[in-house]
Design a binder for these strands. Structure first.
Length: 423
RNA sequence: GGUGAGGUGGCUGAGUGGUCGAAAGCACAUCUUUGCUAAAGAUGCGUAGCCUUAUCCGCUACCGAGGGUUCGAAUCCCUCCCUCACCGCCA
């Protein structure tokens, strides 16, 4: 959520920076400005009337004590009460409308965010490793892992429908090994605290991180309980500190969480047709940071480096791209995507999206921190996958497949997996 | 799911209709004094909104949440949520 004062005082600048995004938000800014004027006028009027009522009510109390008749003056205050109700409703409606509008305006892209219209203009930041060479035609992971009995799409479809999968045997074990490899790496080498959160959350959490109200059709919802299945651990983990004032000594806060992620993928083309690449449910280890505004950009670099380390240790070729203003996520101010090479696909797959949200999420969830001078300030929040599992699984299987159909397990993972190869 | 007890400021905890945003204690900050690894005293110390050139002043709201009664609600009434205990059920 943007600061209404920022919009009020720098409307043109705000519009200009939002213009870099895809979509037109200038009219929303105008609308919020208009409602803000209305809201403040009503609020001022209401408070003046309340002040009158408080004063007169006090006089009634004192008059009654001294035995005077107060019926005339009571009637007068009744009139004020009616007026307060009327103007109060007006103020409340305007206030709610203003909040709705603010919640549907995306974050301002950071000055450091490259300007561009779409994904084609995302600059490549760096490349690690090289595309592996094969003495044979590398196969798709569905064939390699399918032949070894590691994944079963038919079983997934039978139980839950399309775009669900059952991992089994070495596949299930590989998935589990990856999860503990990732968590161990981030908690013991990178200084993150491990979190295992609930997978069902209240709507407030989704508003806090920005999925609601705009993207409600992408999350699973249990109407009977009004709870939502998390689309990413970002939601419960960042909201751990919703409505809190955190002491500055605690910053930066670093959390790592493994959770399954649930996404409806409504309207996604090609859902489930490319093996494990786009599923309704997938595992992910998420990294979340809460930092001071001064350090958030440096923390974005370290968070991204922490995620990259995963691919380096597994010996997987990848590239890092920076999202341009036209491609950046709704709440993000600056984002790096890490894309791993999948030889069987002949393409790079996004396995991590590392974003600095600035104060956008923190303001939505009323998260603050007390600085060195005892002043309440709004911290910055960041998150990134470290990394998504299903696609990591794809890259691993496709990169380490052998001519005989077996899969080699990279050195770094052998301790967790308990073997050097599959098949 | 049932029954009972509760939800007050960073914490503990008073407060059952009228100068209560709320006593007191603890914690914290600044200052003073004695002195020295501590003690005593003074002062200050919640959040948000409105007004405003202003983080001054002033005003408003907030005592789990939302409604209601009343001239006036932390205090009375209703609904809901949460915590704790016991029972039931259960991985």
């Amino acid at each position: 959520m943007l600061d209404i004062r920022l919009i009020r005082d720098n409307a043109e600048q705000v519009k200009q920076r939002l213009a870099g995004r895809s979509g037109d938000f200038a009219s929303l800014v105008d609308e919020v400005l208009a409602i803000d004027t209305q809201r403040r006028a009503a609020e001022t009027e209401r408070q003046k009337l309340q002040s009158d009522r408080n004063r007169i009510s006090k006089e009634i109390g004192m008059a009654k004590k001294s035995g005077q008749d107060t019926s005339a003056i009571e009637a007068e205050v009744r009139g004020i009460g009616t007026r307060i109700d009327e103007i109060g409703r007006e103020a409340d409606v305007a206030d709610a409308r203003q909040r709705d509008l603010l919640l549907s305006i995306p974050n301002l892209p950071h000055e450091a965010c490259p300007v561009g219209e779409s994904a084609e203009q995302n600059p490549e930041v760096r490349v690690w490793g090289t595309k592996p060479e094969f003495a044979f035609e590398p196969k798709d992971h569905t064939h390699v892992a399918g032949a070894l009995g590691m994944i079963d799409f038919e079983a997934g479809a039978k139980i839950s429908g399309s775009a669900f999968v059952v991992y089994r045997g070495a596949g299930a074990r590989l998935e589990r090994a990856l999860i503990s490899f990732l968590l161990d790496l981030h908690t013991t080498q990178h200084g993150y605290e491990e979190i295992s959160p609930p997978l069902l959350v209240k709507s407030e959490c989704l508003v806090g991180t920005g999925q609601l109200p705009k993207f409600g059709d992408q999350v699973y919802h249990s109407a009977a309980d009004d709870l939502y299945l998390i689309p990413t651990a970002e939601v419960p983990v960042t909201n751990l500190h919703r409505d809190e004032i955190v002491a500055h000594e605690k910053l930066p806060i670093n959390y790592a969480a493994y959770t399954p992620c649930f996404r409806r993928e409504a309207g996604s083309a090609g859902l489930g047709t490319r093996g494990l690449i786009r599923m309704h449910q997938f595992d992910k280890v998420e990294l979340v940071k809460i930092t001071t505004p001064e350090t958030s950009m440096a923390e974005l670099e370290s968070l991204t480096a922490n995620a990259e380390k995963v691919l380096q240790l597994l010996g997987l070729h990848y590239r890092v791209i920076e999202l341009c203003t036209g491609d950046i996520g709704f709440g993000s101010a600056k984002t790096y995507d890490i894309e791993v090479w999948a030889p069987g696909q002949g393409t790079y797959l996004e396995v991590s999206s590392c974003s600095n949200f600035g104060d956008y999420q923190a303001r939505r969830m009323n998260l603050r921190y007390k600085d060195e001078n005892g002043k309440n300030r709004i911290p910055h929040t960041l998150n990134g996958s470290g990394t998504a599992l299903a696609r990591l699984f794809v890259a691993l299987v496709e990169t380490y497949q052998q001519a005989d159909g077996s899969i080699l397990i990279p050195e770094a993972l052998r301790g967790h997996f308990g073997a050097g190869k599959i098949g």
